[in-house]
C-alpha cells in the first residue's frame, strides 16, 4: 500500500541538537506521534511520560547510539525503535537521519507472546509506513525535492508526497 503523507516538525520536542519530526497521513488531522501519545496515554501513562521526557532530552542534548535499537524490522530497513524506561512496554518507531534529524511514526505495545513486530498487525503497519518514508526520503533528497538545513537538523523543501488539490 502506498501512503500519502506530510512530514512535519514537532517544535515542542525539537531542540538545539536534534530536529524532531513526525508524519501526518493524508486525511488525518494529527501526526502519527501525537496519535501514538493519545492512543497509549490511558493504559500506559507512565510509559508515555517516559518517552516524552526522553524525546525532549534528545532534542536538547542529542541522540546517542545506545538509546535506540536499529534495524527493528529487517536489516537496513531504516526503521529504529525507542523504548520507554525502565520496562520497555512500548516501542516508538522512527527514522534516524544522522542522529540529528529524527522522523517519528507511531508504535505501540508489543505483546510478549510475539517475537517479531511483523506478527502484530498494529506494529507491522506502523513500521511499514516508516519503511516507505525512509525509502522516499532517500530518493527525494537525491532528487533535491527535500534537503537538510540548519546543520542537518531540519528538513526543508516539499515535505508532502501528494498534491494539495484534494487535501482534507
Amino acid at each position: 500500500m502506498r501512503y500519502e503523507y506530510e512530514i512535519q516538525k514537532i517544535d515542542y520536542l525539537s531542540g538545539k541538537s536534534t530536529g524532531i519530526y513526525s508524519v501526518r497521513l493524508r486525511g488525518e488531522k494529527l501526526d502519527l506521534l501525537e496519535i501514538f501519545f493519545q492512543e497509549n496515554e490511558g493504559e500506559y501513562e507512565d510509559e508515555v511520560e517516559s518517552l516524552l521526557v526522553q524525546l525532549e532530552f534528545i532534542g536538547r542534548n542529542g541522540l546517542r547510539r545506545g538509546y535506540f535499537k536499529e534495524n527493528e524490522g529487517e536489516l537496513n530497513d531504516g526503521v529504529c525503535a525507542l523504548f520507554d524506561t525502565p520496562d520497555k512496554k512500548l516501542r516508538l518507531y522512527f527514522i534516524n537521519n544522522g542522529n540529528v534529524n529524527l522522523v517519528f511514526g507511531g508504535g505501540g505495545p508489543k505483546p510478549k507472546s510475539i517475537r517479531a513486530y511483523q506478527k502484530d498487525p498494529k506494529l507491522a503497519r506502523e513500521a511499514s509506513i516508516l519503511k516507505q518514508i525512509s525509502k522516499d526520503l532517500v530518493q527525494r533528497i537525491k532528487d533535491k525535492d527535500i534537503y537538510y538545513c540548519n546543520d542537518n537538523r531540519d528538513l526543508a523543501g516539499d515535505l508532502k508526497n501528494y498534491e494539495d488539490d484534494d487535501d482534507n
Partner: peptide, 24 residues
C-alpha cells in the same frame, strides 16, 4: 517549506510533558 504541528497548543504530547513530575 517547513511545516509544524504546533498551531494547536493543547496537543496531548505537550500536555503530558507539562504534567510530568520534576522527580520523574
Amino acid at each position: 517549506m517547513m511545516t509544524t504541528t504546533d498551531n494547536n497548543q493543547s496537543t496531548a504530547g505537550r500536555r503530558i510533558l507539562r504534567n510530568v513530575s520534576s522527580a520523574k
